[in-house]
């Protein structure tokens, strides 16, 4: 277990910057998060908020024009950012695994899926290829693929989207990782398939006491799957809380806006509404051109002068409920 904090994963003040022709941007701008074994943390936010770059930073797989400028990522007490590339490669896939949104582009189209799962196993374990193939059959069975002994001979294009994502999960689970990073794992899937994949992830999490960071734009997916939530906006975490607290009593105006602007199912007094939806005016700011002060201030109906001058820091407003807002929403929903 961790020497310093006792958390499985402890991210402190992480800053990931990109150098582009239009200037430098901070895709992840001072993010701090903790996660314990067996927990699922939902990271939610809109496109460009930095949630994917956060996961890629943990994997140390950020694109070439980016770098981690500041902060620490303690995994079992060891700072991943201090490891050399060989040591990091040994952890990737073994201790920390990742699955992506589009399983078709993550799989090699010219290799049989059994061989791909076996390859993942043999990267970290000394087993023969025959043994690895046998293990991959068992893994495919574990993730709910029917007739796995026959399916290992299939190529990715012969599988449906849901099946491909199951194969990706089988590869990710091959070394029983302690931490799984799932980046929009169900966004490309139909809703009935999404439900099955989320159930599978939950099942595997409980069985293996694995921690999961579930990255999604969909509040509903978070509500169904995660225990803790971090809401991101323009590179920053603006609110963190237990999932019940976040939905019952969102403190940040952005979180509240997101929850209330959802059609049906979510809004206060969900009526299947014939009436207008509540909206958040405007659009997410460009990282090249952030407003001064609070990044949400130009869309916020609670913003005052102070919000446009100073940037609020994430602080614990209530017990285990952090928010970065000078004027958090206090009234009960």
């Amino acid at each position: 277990m961790s020497r310093k904090t006792g958390h499985l994963l402890d991210i402190q003040n992480l800053k990931t910057v990109f150098e582009t022709v239009r200037g430098n941007i901070r895709a992840v701008d001072g993010v701090s998060l903790t996660l314990n074994a067996g927990e699922t943390l939902g990271v939610v936010g809109e496109s460009g908020c930095g949630k994917t770059m956060l996961a890629l930073s943990v994997m140390r797989l950020i694109p070439a024009n980016g770098r981690i400028a500041e902060g620490s990522i303690l995994f079992n007490g060891e700072d991943l950012l201090s490891l050399d590339e060989d040591a990091m490669r040994a952890r990737r896939g073994r201790d920390i695994a990742m699955i992506f949104q589009e399983p078709m582009t993550s799989l090699n189209p010219v290799l049989r899926i059994g061989d791909q799962v076996a390859e993942a196993i043999r990267l970290h374990r000394r087993v023969s290829s025959a043994e690895a193939l046998e293990m991959s059959v068992r893994l495919l069975e574990e993730v709910g693929i029917a007739e796995p002994a026959r399916r290992v001979r299939d190529y990715p294009h012969q599988l449906s989207g849901g099946m491909r994502q199951r194969v990706m999960i089988a590869m990710a689970m091959s070394c029983r990782p302690q931490l799984l990073l799932a980046d929009e794992p169900t966004t490309a899937l139909d809703v009935t398939i999404q439900a099955q994949i989320l159930n599978l992830i939950t099942e595997l999490t409980e069985k293996n006491n694995m921690a999961v960071i579930l990255i999604t734009h969909d509040l509903g997916v978070v509500a169904e799957t995660a225990q803790k939530v971090a809401v991101m906006y323009a590179g920053k975490v603006v609110e963190t809380a237990d999932v019940e607290k976040l939905f019952r009593r969102p403190l940040h105006p952005y979180t509240r806006g997101l929850i209330e602007s959802r059609p049906a199912g979510c809004s206060v007094g969900a009526d299947g509404g014939s009436e207008y939806l509540k909206t958040i005016p405007g659009a997410v700011p460009s990282l090249y051109d952030l407003p001064p002060g609070c990044r949400f201030s130009d869309r916020c109906n609670r913003a005052q002068d102070r919000c446009r001058l100073a940037e609020p820091q994430l602080r614990e407003e209530e017990e285990s409920h952090g928010v970065s807002c000078f004027f958090p929403v206090k009234n009960d929903r």
Binding site: S160, A195, Q196, V221, E224, V243, G265, C266
Partner: peptide, 22 residues
């Protein structure tokens, strides 16, 4: 049943969701 709702306390699905449209 498969539609994620924004109610974290929602009790487990009562309808079994299985198979794929083929």
């Amino acid at each position: 049943a498969a539609m994620p709702s924004c109610d974290p306390g929602r009790s487990g699905q009562t309808v079994t969701i299985r198979g794929e449209a083929a």
